[in-house]
Design a protein around this nucleic acid. Structure first.
Lengths: 348, 348
DNA sequence: TTGAAAGCGCTAACAT
DNA sequence: ATGTTAGCGCTTTCAA
């Protein structure tokens, strides 16, 4: 591994001149010198050691990304979008960490990232308690968190990017209601998360607003804590079991996310119910495969590209200037109609 | 951010003593001193700067992972498995880079990783040409590559972990053949990849072995170069279009991966064909959702956990000892039977 | 048992 | 226009 010294020696200049070309300060040297240095760099295949550079500048071109699990396609999609903009627009690499929504793990990861010289972090969907994040901020991190709500109780300590989950829940319910559904249900894993709560709130609000004759229930399913690959679908599958055996079976179900919706459809089918004729289903997230399952899944989409862009820009801006006042960005979701919703059987 | 100096000052010792406790050399100091240092570390919330440490040791606890795209669930799954073992067993973080199978990008990423002080890299499914990898190895990287074949022509320069794609292709074809299918097809994106070629080879070999009366065709579909989220499914969908209009329609189709298989099923349905009654489908990879789509997808599974383990262990071993002779590990896949395959209509 | 000091590769004053 | 040099935070000899 060639060092800046090697380059300097070969080009017959001092290290500072080499450093100057590395940092674009070429105007303060003769073109001839510049050329000689370039040539030496080329010949040696020299690449500056970012690590050593960091020691001086306190910065390293890496963005940390904490995410519940990239085996959840929704998060994988977001992670790729983040990488895309970090990479292309800023030449930053992204270090992805799966937190499995474990707060202790999350805290440890933030610690580790600091130790690795990373100063810019995006935290996706942590649990409500953000004390470990505040601690990390105090130790010098620039963080923006996604989908974690803001406690009205405190003054915010950092930037928040928020999908409008309440609206998502509302949109889903309204879509079903507008098709004539009266008995609705919402399927989710047991356990609260800010975004889950908000989705449910929006869902219930829409039903409330629809007036009498409309009923709602929340179907909760126990899920493995380390929510792995197909846990999400399993949740849906199990929820379907419950739904199939209900006396007053709902005719329209909203699932907390698309993987759960897909599992739900599989479970309903397994119980001899057909979708959407017996039960209409609405998912959330609009993952890639939603378009190709059967029936193609009607779902609520978040503008992932824009979200990723905002998060990266804001995180880097804050790293540059830590005194920026904490900001908040909200992104409204959008209904994507496909074929998993129709009028209920018993409707006029 | 407290430094080792701060700790030394607070504990009233020299930095070397602090360094000694950081590196577990506690036997060479009085218990009392040790306690004082521990206390200082605790009080300051001190975390050693891995970056600075690297400058001396030349090592940083981060593993690079180059992958075509984590929006492909098969790769996402692998990436998570790699992270899991790197994290748990070695306390290594993983830096994931999406290469989109672009060789120039791949080369640049390897360069960047070196610049970031990373010395251990797993490269998944690169194109055939591995010159840029050799170059990186010469610059000090320990790399193990996955699913990239080994050119018989040269002596291998690094470790290879290989799913047995030929066997996968064979297993898929044999499964169909054993159900009485005679006219088979293999659906894939246009463009060669070592693993694609091997899958096709195995597929063809099985049909050959089945004897006369059996026919095979390869269905290729143009895919966007930057293969994004649903490109894979799109490939399957488009392949289905072709298949549906064929005069001698195949009764059994193998798809190069599960996302393509899912798209294929959607496309067949869209053309009024039913699965598996009109066309049986076999996928590859056994992604999480395969179990929940309709019909549940029969597929060929690779032992991902074992693969990930082997890759991480081998990569770290090589980083520790670069003189290890290049090794090769092969992993046989396994058939996972679900409901997307049945006997063909026209069979006796 | 503890401490002093050199040096890892680089940047950025400051000097020439 | 170019060079000298003092660190950045840490590890590790070597000396006390």
């Amino acid at each position: 591994m060639a060092t800046i010294q090697d380059v300097a020696r070969l080009a017959n200049v001092s290290v500072s001149s080499v450093s100057n070309v590395l940092n674009g300060r070429t105007e303060r040297m003769r073109a001839e010198t510049f050329a000689r240095i370039e040539e030496a760099i080329e010949k040696l295949g020299y690449r500056p050691n970012q690590i050593a550079r960091h020691l001086k500048t306190g910065n390293i071109p890496v963005l940390g990304l904490l995410v519940p699990s990239t085996s959840n396609p929704s998060f994988a999609h977001l992670a790729v979008a983040v990488e895309e903009v970090a990479q292309r627009r800023h030449n930053y690499r992204v270090l992805v960490c799966n937190t499995y929504r474990d707060q202790r793990l999350e805290a440890k990861m933030l610690d580790d990232l600091i130790g690795l010289g990373i100063r810019t972090v995006i935290v996706i969907s942590s649990i409500g308690d953000e004390r470990h994040i505040d601690a990390a901020i105090n130790r010098g991190l620039a963080v923006v968190s996604y989908d974690s709500g803001i406690s009205a109780s405190r003054t915010p300590t950092h930037d928040h990017v928020l999908p409008d989950n309440t609206l998502a829940g509302r949109l889903a319910a309204e879509h079903l209601i507008s098709h004539g559904h009266k008995r609705l249900a919402f399927a989710k894993p047991r356990g609260e998360t800010i975004s889950r709560r908000q989705k449910v709130e929006g869902f219930l609000a829409a039903i409330e607003a629809a007036g009498p004759g409309h009923s709602a229930q929340i179907i909760e399913v126990d899920a493995g804590s380390r929510f792995g690959d197909n846990e999400l679908s399993k949740v849906g599958f199990d929820a379907a079991r419950q739904i199939a055996t209900m006396k007053e079976r709902p005719s329209g179900v909203v699932a907390v996310n698309d993987m759960t919706a897909i599992g739900l459809m599989a479970g309903l089918r397994d119980s001899g119910l057909s979708i959407p004729d017996d039960v209409s289903v609405v998912g959330m997230d609009n993952i890639a495969v939603a378009e190709y399952v059967w029936p193609p899944l009607t779902t609520i989409a978040t503008p992932v590209k824009e979200v990723a862009e905002t998060m990266v820009e804001q995180a880097l801006a804050r790293a540059r200037n830590p005194d920026l006042p904490p900001a908040e960005f909200s992104f409204p979701p959008v209904l994507v109609e496909r074929q998993s919703v129709t009028r209920p059987r018993d409707s006029i």
